[in-house]
Design a protein around this nucleic acid. Structure first.
Lengths: 115, 115
DNA sequence: ATTTCATATGAATAATATTTCATATGTGTT
DNA sequence: AACACATATGAAATATTATTCATATGAAAT
């Protein structure tokens, strides 16, 4: 796919067409999104997230790793626990934009949005 | 996964946890993202997009359908052509937020972002 | 130093999304 | 009406991503 002519990423040569995709990919998953929304309320350790979402622990860990890799969440150690917290600066405004979008286009049961 | 306690989507009952995922899913694909960036410049018909991105036509049509379903793009007819344009209100600010995010965390070749 | 609790990891399997390609539809032209 | 051009669609094949589960690591407690 040709894309050299497209001006993207405010001219940082390391931000390209795929940077966006990869970022979106991380959020395009119900479990990871569940974690994001869960951490939106407050920081939590892995066990707490596991309990809150009622999902098997290794799944949570895999998902957290993915989210951490692209800095959507960050970790802190506390004894044997890992406390995860949301990078709110980026995520919260994005979720708000999608809220507006959905409020505008997705009134009533919105089949178009379904997969 | 439990999620009833999470306040999402400004209380529109049709916006939930999955609304976000589905939206992100649409953008989490190099071809669809290519189209979005291509349409950011100006509106174009299918042939023009096909030519610009150098991708087989039916692929473009499939991708456009997906993007249209969730209102990321819209269409207008003009003779036998379909002119697609980007819904800039939602997408452009989101891309900007990711630019800032990437500029902050992705300096130099950023392996963490890779799949 | 052994046990226990908290979390992470690898790799096979399963689920899901994308590509492909043949063909259909729709619109204008002759 | 026959043709040509523009775009869309269905469905099988393929590629990508997520889940699973057994197990590893790491840190505190006994």
């Amino acid at each position: 796919m040709k894309s050299g002519s497209l001006k993207i990423g405010k001219f940082n040569p390391y931000i390209n067409h795929n940077t966006y995709c990869i970022f979106f990919e991380k959020l395009a998953n119900p479990l990871r999104m569940g974690i994001v929304l869960c951490l939106r309320q407050k920081k939590r350790n892995v066990s707490e997230i596991t309990k809150e979402l009622q999902v098997e622990q290794s799944k949570i860990s895999h998902a957290l790793k993915t989210l951490k890799n692209c800095n959507i969440v960050k970790v802190n150690k506390k004894g044997k626990q890992r406390i995860y917290s949301l990078n709110k600066d980026t995520i919260l405004p994005i979720l708000k934009l999608i809220d507006s979008h959905a409020n505008k286009y997705c009134r009533g049961k919105c089949y178009l949005w379904e997969k």
